[in-house]
Amino acid sequence: MSITDPNLSDCFNDKIEEIHNKRLKTLGAILDGATGLGQCHKQFLTSALDTGLKKCKNDDMMFETIQAFKKDLKQKSALIKEKQHEISDVISEINQKETQKDKILAKIQKLREEQAKRQEVIQAQNKANKDRLRNLQKARNVFQKHLGLEIRTILGKSQLAKGEKLQFVFRNINTSHPDNAYVVTMGITEDGSYQIVSSDPALECLPVLERRLQETNNLPAFLANVRKEFISLAQR
């Protein structure tokens, strides 16, 4: 009732219409924006889904690859263990061979040392035998020249050191029968020692004379003592 301007109602309606239109435009803009956002969100979700599916597929492929790697690694680990056992066996065999080699070398060295010792013994025996042969020759010359001693070789003409024996034949023992023979047979053992085989006639003291000969290595003295024993035996 206080409104006096007749155009005020129209003006108010225009303002209301203008505000309403602005609100509709704003709402339309909001709806357009919401629609755009929805389209963007939809595109984003579609893209994210595609990316997720692709990622899932890649993950599946990666998982299969990892499983294949694990399987291959397991097989290779088993193969490595088997090779390690083989290597261990080979190393053990090599160590055994080395041990056997060391034993063989030690045995060879021992045999060489024993061979060297045997060579020394042989050389010493040969020297001793040569000395004995010289003594035999010396005794032979002395007794043949002065006492009519005859030395005979038995078992062929091989060297004395190889087992040949000698007979010492004494004569001029019995004054009644000067041609009667008194015989001592002797040889040299493998270790180079004198060995009395027998005497004819038998002398009871022959073992004592033999032992003394082995101790002194004095063959002329031995033959002189044997001759004395034969003389003593012939005078009984």
Rank of each mutant, 00 (worst) to 15 (best):
Q115S: 11
F63Q: 11
S193D: 11
Q96K: 02
C205E: 15
F168Y: 11
Q100L: 01
F230A: 11
K165Q: 15
I87L: 12
S2H: 12
I196Q: 01
V121Y: 00
R211Y: 08
G156S: 12
N180T: 07
S47A: 04
P220Y: 03
K117A: 01
A181V: 13
A202F: 04
E120D: 12
Q43C: 00
T99P: 00
Q43R: 03
C11F: 05
K228T: 14
R118Q: 15
F63Y: 13
R171P: 01
H146Q: 08
D10C: 05
Q100C: 00
I108F: 08
G192K: 02
V169L: 14
A48H: 03
L147C: 04
S88T: 06
K138R: 13
R227T: 06
G192A: 13
T189F: 01
Q67R: 06
F63D: 10
K97H: 02
Q75G: 06
I66T: 14
E114M: 10
N218R: 08
S9Y: 05
K81V: 10
G33E: 07
T51F: 00
K57A: 12
K110P: 03
V197F: 13
K25A: 13
I3K: 03
R227H: 09
Q109A: 11
E114V: 10
A181T: 12
N218D: 15
F222P: 04
R140D: 05
C56H: 06
T189W: 00
E98R: 11
K157P: 00
K71Q: 10
F168I: 07
V183F: 02
M61I: 05
E114N: 12
E204L: 03
E210K: 14
N217R: 07
H41I: 05
E164T: 13
E98A: 05
A68L: 08
K54S: 13
D179S: 14
S176T: 12
A224C: 08
M62T: 02
R212T: 11
N172L: 09
I16M: 10
F12Q: 10
I16R: 06
Y194N: 00
E150G: 04
I196P: 02
K157C: 00
A139T: 09
N217K: 07
I30R: 11
C11D: 03
N95E: 08
E150R: 11
C40F: 09
V208P: 00
L233P: 02
E113C: 03
K162P: 00
F168E: 01
N95K: 14
D72E: 04
I108G: 01
V226I: 06
N129K: 00
D32L: 11
F69I: 12
L149R: 04
V226H: 06
D179G: 03
A34T: 07
H85N: 15
I122Q: 01
K22Q: 06
I196M: 06
K55S: 05
S158D: 11
S193V: 02
P178G: 07
Y194P: 06
M61T: 09
N172T: 06
K15Y: 09
T175W: 09
T99Q: 12
G148V: 03
V197D: 04
N7A: 04
M1W: 05
L147N: 05
F230V: 08
G28C: 02
Q75I: 00
I154P: 02
S88E: 13
L79G: 08
A128L: 03
L133E: 07
L136E: 08
N13S: 12
G192V: 07
N126A: 01
E64Y: 03
D14Q: 14
I66Y: 15
H41Q: 07
E18K: 08
Q43Y: 01
C205W: 07
Q109R: 13
Q119W: 07
L105R: 09
